[in-house]
């Protein structure tokens, strides 16, 4: 099995795990979205990832960049809502980072940075707006520093990033929303955890779990 094959299998396996995890957490995500949104985040995420998973499991020939791009494109066309363009569009465009060298420690940092940038471009949220950006920012910063400055192995770096994302998710609870539907609530959004930050964490946890096996 060559490198490309191995990476393809890893992506497919990670996606399988992410899909299963989102399925499990579907009603929890929806409950979070009920409190400060419109009660569909679980349905949105599972609808998109199930479809992406189906598609990717059939792509025996593609390289990792194409696989990742397919995930993004599928989310864009299946999910709708705010999370469709945010997750899907950003994955789609960040997938370019893998097109030349495949998935390496370096390209994975580039991917993470591009992904975060795209989410912010599209959604206009800053850190502290109580959105997925609050989980992503510490995760991306930590990952980048762990690899580039601390020279950690990608697996270790990812584990640290997951911890950071978790801190970010917790951070969304006590603050007031400035973006997304939760912002309509004004001060009443304080005290509730953000659904999109939460789903971001779950996805990262599954990437880590897949990498660990």
């Amino acid at each position: 099995m060559n490198d490309t094959d191995r990476q393809r299998e890893a992506v497919a396996e990670a996606l399988e795990n992410v899909t299963a995890r989102l399925d499990e957490e579907k009603s929890h995500l929806t409950d979070l979205d009920s409190a400060i949104g419109d009660a569909d985040h679980g349905a949105n995420m599972t609808r998109g990832f199930r479809k992406a998973n189906e598609k990717v499991q059939d792509m025996d020939e593609a390289d990792p960049a194409e696989l990742v791009k397919t995930i993004g494109v599928t989310l864009v066309s299946e999910v709708g809502g705010a999370s469709g363009p945010l997750y899907g569009g950003s994955i789609m465009s960040a997938s370019q980072e893998f097109s030349e060298e495949g998935i390496t420690a370096e390209t994975s940092v580039a991917f993470a940075e591009a992904y975060l940038e795209k989410v912010q471009d599209r959604g206009g949220a800053e850190i502290g707006s109580k959105t997925m950006v609050d989980a992503l920012t510490p995760a991306v910063h930590t990952y980048k520093k762990s690899i580039e400055t601390d020279d950690l192995e990608p697996l270790e770096a990812l584990a640290k990033a997951v911890d950071a994302a978790e801190r970010g998710v917790e951070f969304t609870t006590p603050i007031r929303a400035r973006k997304g539907r939760a912002s309509y609530l004004g001060w009443r959004s304080v005290g509730h955890q953000d659904p999109g930050a939460t789903s971001t964490l779950y996805i990262m946890e599954e990437l880590l779990a897949t990498a660990q096996t």
Binding site: D40, A43, N44, G80, G84
Partner: peptide
């Protein structure tokens, strides 16, 4: 027509 309470995707 998106899913219930969900914006339709850009494709649609």
């Amino acid at each position: 027509a998106g899913e219930v309470f969900t914006s339709p995707s850009a494709d649609q």
